[in-house]
Design a protein around this nucleic acid. Sequence first.
RNA 1: CGGGGCGUGGCGCAGCUUGGAAGCGCGCCUGCUUUGGGAGCAGGAGGCCGCCGGUUCAAAUCCGGCCGCCCCGACCA
Length: 570
Amino acid sequence: MLASRFYMPTLREAPADAEMPSHRLLLRGGFIRPLSAGIFTWLPLGQRVLQRVENVVREEMNRAGAHEVLMPVLHPRDLWERSGRWDTFQPTPLRVTDRAEREFCLGPTHEEVITDLIAMDLDSYRELPVTLYQIQVKFRDEIRPRGGLIRGKEFIMKDAYSFDRTREGLDTSYDAMYDAYVRIFERLRLPVVVVEAEAGSIGGTDTREFMLLSENGEDTVYMCDSCDYASNAECATAMAPEPIEPAAESHRELVSTPDAKTVEQVTGMLGTTPDRLVKTLLYRTDEGFIAALVRGDRSLNEFKLARIVHGESLRMADEAEVRELTGARVGFAGPVGLPENVRIIADYEVQAMSDFVTGANQDDAHFTNVNLGADFEPDEFADLREACHGDSCAHCDSGALQARRCIEMAHVFKLGTNYSEALDATFRDADGHEQPCIMGCYGIGVSRIVSALVEQYHDDAGIMWPRESAPFDATILLLSPDDEELRAVADNLYAELREAGIEVLYDERDASPGVKFAEADLIGAPVRAVVGRTTKKEGKVELRRRVDGEEQLVPLDEAVKAIVTLLGDA
RNA sequence: CGGGGCGUGGCGCAGCUUGGAAGCGCGCCUGCUUUGGGAGCAGGAGGCCGCCGGUUCAAAUCCGGCCGCCCCGACCA
């Protein structure tokens, strides 16, 4: 590609409101341009990167035996009604109405469409297993887009879906996708960590996320510093402490705590600390009320609570409900003296506490010196709290959990039969019985990978693309375009490299050397070849590897070979 | 949705407190010079000051409303 004829509008300074390095550099380098919050146009450079990333994904999907399809963006309401997600998917899908008042949503994900597709043609177990995938734009009405391509309202995702006749078959399909993902991230040079995860609005089991550790990430994972346990903060578990003996006799005391509603206010007033208080959080489900107890300095993990109570409609009790249950304002709830029908679930950690503070279920009062056994008995104990940095690992003897920020790159789930049952994707088994097929679902954030690559591979001057994702493999800088001898050398090198199958950006523009160097660093092709005064004097080309700045001078007739070698480990 | 910040030539910003001729740097155009790290000199073009309304003799500046963008939080494959 001749730089003089290529569209690559670079910016000397990034817009002030772009903060993340990837966002700034992609804008400055002329890879993307914003249209609206969380919505971007891909410029030629960005499109080249995107296509290269897509191709790595595509090749590995095909290698794993998946077949590519392309599904619609507009999904009819009826389909989403049948899966039950029209009203429940979060964030609520973007909805549109056509001229005949038919309702559609812009697909945020494609379980419904793919399951319906399979249902149309699936008859016999002989047709399974099958895995289909697509690389498609998704729309999510995100609460808050951020970080450029990291979280957009509109983004590109590779989503694959497997259909099997047995659970064992699903395991095989799942493993094939998992392995393909490992290869994809190896090829892209993204050192991901695979962690346990929540299934969210998709549903399913055995969910794993592929995370890139990055200070600029928006997720948190906990990793054990001793064993290989790693989990999204949404479901990480810490070692539960040893329970202590329940107290035989009560010696709790009622104390006045006027207007003290928060843990800090109560413990401050009573001269104690949050880890000596038990917090009582009241929830409502379809089946009734729940009191969840955690230590005062801990956060309740609602995913964990929801899993225990199988509560699809879990929500915090409102003010009126709290008053009805406790007879007090919000802020004074406690486990002692709650109505019989409130199910009390206590975090394991509470089992190791004694003489603690709780709400007294009356306005402006708390109990001190409360104990399990003597004062109340929970219906059950469970892991309810969020893990914290430094907690003991629950999976080994010696490790501690370390919190790390990260960017979610991919997610795999075993879906089971939720969708196949709802949408009648069934087949006849060998015995002639009708069975729902067993599904798996596997997503990769393709556009997000582009951002993640920049976060991982950049310096102050610009981007340092690994070869698989680079917009160009190499760039030639012709520093004196008016010198006919040098131009002939550079033209020739350009032709030879192209013949060798190398994608080259040839900067033969009538611009100053400084501009060419700066833009080459910014755009970030793995290898740079300079044709200039050294070429004139010594007949040599100057090669430089972007990622580490390593330079070498090579004779003209060895340049192509040297560049190929440099690219080999880029 | 809550909190904070911002909106002035293509980009980065000053001006607003205290109303009175729209500025600076970069970029762009023309000419000459220059050519190894975002060149120099000279000349030039380009702005409904986000939008609507109000106050005033007079509004980029003060007041009200709206829109947009960014950051934090809640939330989230």
